[in-house]
Design a protein around this nucleic acid. Structure first.
Length: 485
DNA sequence: TTTTGAGTTGTTCGA
DNA sequence: GTCGAACAACTCAAA
């Protein structure tokens, strides 16, 4: 006979109702469901959110709670070590089953596995699901049985082997039992003194409905130009901007895959652009494979030969980069967009990351940490994997001699100059010819534009070719050390 | 087992 | 202004 006891559904990085396997299973039993979110403490807790992500989490939890209440349910908020919280709620409520969607960082995996054992020993039914990835890291294997270290074969294997599961609709009702909850407002996730979040609020609608609207809007037009426009930070809607929604699980990559392939197969969107868009989703998957098999991805060089890299220490240069005061407009525009909106266009992320690790020769970990704190989409897999890729220490890394030229990158990809004019308003009147290199303009031109270099806008903190040569030398030294060891 | 082809996103230089 | 070569060698994946 089926149990009538409630089920605990532990929400983690899957703050949505649709295409949520754990929720779908729990709701499908017809039993009462206790929807739980834990502000985790202890050694099994995931890497603590940065400030921007905490802002997002606050709104996303509010949206999830509202959605659950509309179904007759409720989101229960608790703080503590996850196992203690869950055992406590099970005792209070008589729940005899716990379900969740899996996570892939090492501490979380270890903690989840230990918790599962504990709960099973107590007689609770315990189930986990894949609610975050198209394929889990252990599912896609090379011919030799290992995990992929190069993106292209990974992507080919994914396309050849992946079949998209059927849509899991949100439950129509989700009744629950009364369990004590903390107040979201008491968690202090929203910044105060000062409240710096107005730019974030202007830019985003956290929550499942906001995510769905974003996908709809992207697939209804912008996706068609994606293969070329995705490199253009000056164009509106050149990318999907789904990353923070994916990070918090407000939308599933499965949903994105299903919707996009259906439209492409029906001939309603450009096939090639759809492919490129899905390949970006696959990069996220690839990053999760890297994280799964390299738990220290956020701190340790994937390629250990980079342990000998002669990184600089320069707090002033780091601060100039963080504040968008390097004197290179495309770099500064990107860093200011990040600070204001919690997000940066992907093309510009590459430029600023190259500038930090190559021109400034500062360790990629410093950039990764800054992005972690300031990005609303700061992802435990994508963020470190992408930083390591740029620095050259990562899997399938950029060649060491690929040093982005911040002037020509600006001219090429912010070709209208609208991106720089928007985020560096003090340069708004500089003619396009000099906009990406104001230091090359003559005094009269700058004066007419109201720019006083070194006063109203910084002079370059490092000369491009000087920085480039120094970076190439540093990478050369790595190679020599490796050869002699 | 060995071999072979290939590898996200670029820049510079010189013809 | 345009174009191709050089920038390195190494590791990966698959045949």
């Amino acid at each position: 006979m089926a149990s009538a006891a409630p089920i605990i559904l532990w929400f983690r990085e899957d703050l949505r109702l649709a295409d949520n396997p754990a929720l779908s299973w729990a709701a499908g039993t017809g039993r009462l469901v206790i929807c739980l979110y834990i502000r985790e403490t202890g050694s099994g807790a995931p890497r603590a959110h940065g400030g921007a992500s905490n802002w997002w989490l606050d709104k996303s939890l509010k949206a999830l709670g509202d959605s659950l209440e509309a179904l007759g349910g409720r989101l229960v908020l608790r703080t503590g070590e996850a196992g203690e919280v869950i055992r406590g709620i099970a005792r209070e409520s008589g729940a005899d089953a716990v379900v969740w969607n899996r996570r892939y960082g090492q501490p979380e995996r270890d903690a989840d596995a230990a918790l599962k054992d504990r709960l099973k020993a107590l007689g609770l039914d315990c189930r986990s699901f894949n609610g975050r990835l198209l394929v889990e890291p252990w599912e896609l294997k090379t011919g030799a049985g290992g995990w992929y270290r190069v993106f292209t074969p990974f992507w080919k294997a994914l396309q050849a082997n992946y079949s998209c599961p059927a849509y899991l609709p949100p439950p129509k009702r989700l009744e629950t039992v009364k369990v004590q909850s903390e107040e979201l407002g008491g968690w202090g996730l929203h910044p105060t003194r000062p409240d710096w979040s107005s730019g974030l609020a202007e830019s985003w609608t956290p929550g499942e409905a906001g995510a769905a609207a974003r996908l709809d809007a992207f697939l209804d037009g912008p996706v068609d130009g994606y293969s070329s426009n995705r490199n253009r930070p000056d164009l509106a809607d050149s990318t999907s901007a789904l990353s923070p929604h994916l990070r918090f699980g407000e939308i599933s990559p499965v949903t994105i895959w299903r919707r996009t392939t259906a439209l492409a197969e029906a001939g309603r969107i450009n096939e090639a652009s759809a492919r490129v868009f899905l390949s970006e989703i696959a990069w996220r998957e690839f990053s999760y494979t890297l994280l799964y098999f390299n738990p220290d991805l956020a701190t340790e060089n994937y390629n250990p030969s980079f342990d000998a890299m002669p990184w600089q220490k320069n707090a002033d240069a780091l601060r100039a980069w963080q504040r968008g005061m390097t004197g290179y407009p495309i770099v500064d525009a990107g860093m200011r967009q990040l600070w204001h909106t919690g997000w940066m266009h992907n093309r510009v992320r590459m430029i600023v990351a190259s500038f930090l690790t190559k021109h400034l020769l500062l360790p990629w970990q410093a950039g990764e940490a800054w992005f972690w704190d300031t990005l609303v989409d700061a992802d435990p897999a994508s963020n470190p994997a992408s930083w390591q890729w740029t620095a050259g220490s990562g899997a399938d890394a950029a060649p060491y001699f690929r040093v982005f030229n911040p002037i020509t990158q600006g001219q090429k990809f912010d070709e209208t100059g609208e991106y720089v004019r928007r985020w560096c308003p003090e340069l708004a009147k500089v003619p396009l010819k000099f906009l990406h290199a104001p230091f090359e303009a003559d005094g009269a031109t700058l004066a007419r534009a109201g720019v006083d270099l070194g006063v109203t806008y910084p002079k370059p903190i490092i000369d491009h070719s000087t920085g480039r040569e120094r970076a190439l030398g540093a990478y050369q030294s790595l190679k020599e050390k490796q050869a002699s060891s």
